[in-house]
Design a protein around this nucleic acid. Structure first.
Length: 950
RNA sequence: GCUGAAGUGGUGGAAUUGGUAGACACGUUGGACUUAAAAUCCAAUGUCCCUUGGGACGUACGGGUUCAAGUCCCGUCUUCAGUACCA
């Protein structure tokens, strides 16, 4: 009987589906284990072989954990809101829901044929109203929360209102907007409802505010910082400009410290933690307030102007020789003197014209302008000139710096360029060539009361003295900015928000979901409003509590609804909780308390590293909020996280003569002027030979090559090869459907793992798959011969047991270490050994099936059932390693001379050190090697090695 | 620039606490079977020297520690990823 993978795989996939083999239960005596993949966005192109890599790894782990006696939750779903479907809708007019549905069908078919042990009964789709109902619900919770720095957690907004009512805001220590004025309980009581709402917005964890956003004109939407790569949009590489807009924002900055601290509690890779640390960007220092000195152009009122700066080096305060403001700084226009006005304005105009990208690309050119104004040094009371310069960013800190040229290279360069003095405040340090930026091993000098102190001491003292003056305090700053949460798009979650007199109001949770309205076109309106502005039925009736026609808007009982939608990360920031609930019980809360308590959080999360600062940070943020508000019990969503590496394509090239239609085989190119041209990789075999006939009859490109002449070498046309990212344009995309059809899902699974370490980037080359495919055939033949089943009840030999148990040990270690590639080799070695041992013993071959079943589940199930087992192999226990089978009576010792291995010698394991030395020294080969010399030293490590020195 | 990861045959990669470098595959070469091809099986395959026994060199490069280094230490180079005037 042949190994008929196609029918075997179909058979068991049907069996699993019919018997719901992998359906997880929320009630179990077994310990729980939650294995999750980052869910895919269902794109129109379908899967290529790179996509399932992480899914295969997590599936192996999930199946392994089941064998190990765990109740495993291993779900899958779709991140089904997103830009590509909408762009396609704009082009074709097709509703994104329709194309998304079709794409999901393709994904599901492709995933199913790889044999994953997903519990599909718990599938989620972020674009389903039953799902986004709860995304909207979470949004409302954010709106109804504020961050209390005293309790160090988010609380319901009612506790804030209570405080305002009883004592105003003087004792409130909250994360909020900067520009909040003090008010009393009486003030609060006298504020109008709108004024109160306006104040509360400055405290809410999601708030509506006019902020400077990253506007992408080509996409017609704003983008979050993590959606911009090198100054252009991550999707499509379109330019991005700064623009002021009223937008929903998430006060993620409230959680900066907890997001940072939490990293120590989770098992993620260092590089990932490092990315998040950098993104959060904590820096400890001081805020210092400089008084602006009055000058002739300033009026009375303006005399009390202050410039606040943030510095990490309060110890260098006496090194300040100028101040620099960002050109956008709000005080610039007020402090600039009449004499400097023209110059300053010209400079501001020039910098405004430069795009973000230009500014980033060109960091070497030093530019700036003097405002003519001076600030007063808090201690020396000396006047300090105030400059503006675009090396100071408006978006970080206060948008102003105290410039200490002797201690900061940028300040140094600026001072040199504009001939500003560079006072030296470091003892015995030469600053004639560059600034001295180190904090270590240096003492402060020329600094009044700070003289002789080191960084730590001087900083503390400077902060203390600033506090005495009321001109500063210790401060910690974070780079992490609040996240813009509005998108001017159609295909996303609508906000549960309507507007009364311009103030946002939440729709009661009981009326959710607010479903996406129908629109004629998916483009912004002629007046520049988002696509939802085209909806005719998009108003909220507060009496009926339903969405009604816009015609009914009267601003009394019917109000306009929010026109923006939520960003892509909204739905993905909590989906891991949704899976915890049985699909049948999902109508209550977003997941029941029992389910949340049982599954807690994700034990193992596998996905791409591109989500390091987006999804993985936002999810942590939302989970912390949900915990603070008592909806979940965990502080972190993902205990252990692994980034799978990308699978790259192996592109193939033909070499076309530059002057005619002749193609030279790779070895014949030499110095000829040729043009390398990508060809589809499916026309290339394992020996890099081109299937010329296949290429010529290709539906897409056949015409181009029809009349071409191919110059062969050794009877074949050899292509050139190069490793590149798998992409349609490089014709190196390999579809898993083809691999499954030709070699089977088990071969695909094994090969993806066999390619190399999970985390590494590695090229795919279909040619190599014959290796694992042949292995599976050989594996099959170990069980099934020409006359059917070969397995019998023969007593296993010592060799059989040794092979089995060393395989158990190695495979178990490998899976625990996520080293799946080495397991595949181990299986190959085991099968090679058992084949040559002619092993037919069921006691050996049956446990071997369990070992391999996480990797190649179909063939394992088939052989398992052929051995007479009625239940799925997934119910079997993992074999138990017994070290007694590996005990060796002898060891083949490598005998080295001066560290170089010369020969091996088999000696009993129980031989003593002295006896080993004696036996080795007496050996004829040793005598020959020494050639009469007397060794200086003989190293004997029993069980390991013998090394003779001399 | 900074941070992180990595550099081993023609290729993917292995070597878990320093102890036989190159496991396991792909490819290549030769052979068996076949009219032939495919499939399958067997053998060889780091480089160089050499008649065989064998020898020299070899894990990016240069040093070092050690009886012994791919592995540890110091320095350099290269590649990839993230980040980028963060005060």
């Amino acid at each position: 009987m042949k190994y008929d993978f196609n029918s075997i795989e179909k058979k068991w996939q049907d069996y699993w589906a019919k018997n719901q083999t992998f359906k997880a239960t929320n009630i179990s005596d077994k310990p729980k284990y939650y294995v999750l993949d980052m869910f895919p966005y269902p794109s129109g192109a379908g899967l290529h072989v790179g996509h399932p890599l992480g899914y295969i790894a997590s599936d192996i782990y999930a199946r392994y954990k089941r064998h190990k006696g765990f109740n495993v939750l291993h779900p899958q779903g779709y991140d089904s809101f997103g830009l590509p479907a909408e762009q396609y809708a704009i082009q074709t007019g097709q509703h994104p829901a329709v194309t998304t549905e079709a794409n999901i069908k393709t994904y599901r078919r492709q995933l199913d044929q790889i044999g994953f042990s997903f519990d599909w009964s718990r599938e989620v789709r972020t674009s389903n109203p039953e799902y986004y109902k709860w995304t909207q619900w979470i949004f409302i919770q954010l709106f109804e929360s504020w961050y209390n720095n005293d309790s160090n957690k988010a609380e319901h907004i009612d506790t804030l209102i209570e405080a305002f009512t009883s004592e105003g805001n003087k004792n409130i220590n909250a994360v909020c907007d900067d520009n909040i004025e003090l008010f009393s309980a009486e003030d609060w009581a006298n504020y109008s409802s709108e004024e109160q709402q306006d104040i509360l917005l400055k405290y809410r964890l999601t708030y509506l505010a006019e902020t400077e956003v990253n506007w992408c004109p080509a996409l017609g939407t704003v983008l979050a910082n993590d959606e911009i790569v090198n100054g252009v949009s991550e999707r499509g590489s379109h330019p991005v400009v700064r623009k002021k807009m009223t937008q929903w924002s998430m006060r993620i900055s409230a959680y900066a410290e907890r997001l940072l601290q939490g990293l120590d509690t989770i098992d993620w890779t260092d590089s990932l933690k490092e990315s998040q640390k950098n993104w959060i960007g904590k820096s400890v220092g001081a805020s210092v307030s400089f008084n602006v000195l009055p000058n002739v152009t300033l009026s009375e009122v303006e005399e009390s102007l202050k410039i606040d700066v943030f510095t990490t080096r309060p110890d260098t305060i006496f090194g300040v020789s100028f101040m620099t403001l960002a050109p956008e700084h709000e005080l610039v226009s007020q402090i600039t003197t009449a004499a400097q006005k023209a110059e300053v304005e010209a400079y501001i105009e020039a910098t405004a014209k430069r795009s973000e990208r230009d500014r980033m690309a060109d960091v070497k050119t030093i530019s700036g302008a003097f405002t003519g104004a001076y600030a007063e040094h808090p201690f020396s009371k000396e006047p300090i000139p105030i400059w503006i310069g675009d090396y100071v960013l408006a978006g970080y800190g206060t948008g102003a710096v105290m410039s200490v040229p002797c201690g900061d290279q940028r300040d140094y360069d600026f001072a040199k360029h504009f001939n500003i003095p560079i006072p030296n405040i470091f003892e015995g340090v030469d600053i004639s060539k560059e600034a001295f930026a180190s904090k270590d091993n240096v003492k402060i000098a020329n600094s009044d009361f700070l003289n002789g102190m080191n960084y730590k001491k001087a900083s503390k003292r400077a902060i203390y003295d600033l506090e005495q003056l009321g001109q500063g305090e210790g401060k910690t700053n974070y780079r992490l900015r609040d996240a813009v949460f509005s998108r001017q798009r159609y295909w996303g979650e609508p906000f549960p928000v309507y507007y009364v007199n311009g103030m946002p109001q939440m729709i009661d949770a009981e009326h959710l979901p607010i479903k996406l309205p129908e629109v004629e076109k998916y483009l912004p309106t002629e007046t520049g409003e988002p696509p939802l502005g085209r909806a005719d039925v998009w108003a909220w009736d507060v009496n009926q509590n339903s969405v009604v026609s816009n015609d009914l808007i009267d601003h009394k009982t019917v109000f306009p609804l929010e026109l923006n939608t939520m960003p892509g990360w909204a739905g993905s920031s909590w989906y891991f909780f949704r899976y915890m609930e049985d699909a049948a019980n999902r109508d209550g809360v977003f997941a029941s308390e029992d389910a949340l308590n049982y599954w807690e959080n994700v034990d193992l999360y596998i996905g791409g590293s591109e989500h390091a600062t987006g999804h993985l940070l936002y999810s942590r943020f939302w989970v912390k909020l949900l915990k603070d508000r008592g909806f979940v019990n965990v502080e972190e969503p993902f205990k252990k996280l692994i980034n799978q590496g990308m699978i790259l394509g192996t592109s193939a090239f033909v070499y076309r003569d530059e002057s005619n239609n002749t193609y030279y085989s790779k070895g014949l190119v030499g110095d000829k002027n040729v043009l390398p041209i990508h060809v589809k990789v499916q026309y290339v075999n394992a020996s890099d030979e081109l299937d010329i006939e296949g290429l010529k009859s290709d539906g897409e490109f056949g015409e181009d090559f029809k009349d071409a002449e191919f110059i062969l070498e050794d009877g074949a046309y050899k292509v050139g090869r190069d490793v590149e990212k798998m992409s349609k344009s490089k014709y190196n995309v390999v579809n898993p459907d083809d691999i499954v059809a030709d070699y089977g899902a088990d071969s695909l699974r094994l090969y993806e793992m066999f390619l190399g370490p999970l985390e590494q980037y590695k090229p795919w080359n279909t040619a190599g798959i014959t290796g694992v495919h042949n292995f599976l055939k050989k594996f099959w033949k170990l069980y099934i011969g020409d006359n059917g089943l070969k397995v019998n009840n023969a007593q296993p030999t010592a060799d059989n047991l040794k092979t089995l148990h060393k395989t158990i040990k190695k495979v178990e270690e490998d899976i625990e270490n996520f080293s799946f590639n080495t397991s595949v080799s181990t299986f190959m070695i085991a099968v090679n050994e058992l084949t040559s041992q002619k092993c037919t013993s069921k006691d050996v071959l049956e446990p071997l099936l369990v070992l391999i079943s996480p990797y190649a589940p179909h063939i394992a199930e088939e052989l398992w059932s052929q051995l007479g087992n009625a239940n799925s192999i997934s119910t079997a226990s993992f074999p138990i390693f017994d070290a007694s089978h590996l005990v060796e009576s002898s060891k083949k010792y490598p005998i080295s001379f001066n560290g170089k291995m010369r020969f091996t010698l088999e000696l009993p394991m129980d031989m003593s050190k002295d006896e080993i030395e004696k036996t080795v020294m007496a050996h004829e080969k040793t005598i020959a090697q020494l050639d009469g010399r007397t060794p200086k030293k003989v190293i004997v490590v029993p069980g390991k090695i013998v090394n003779i020195v001399g």
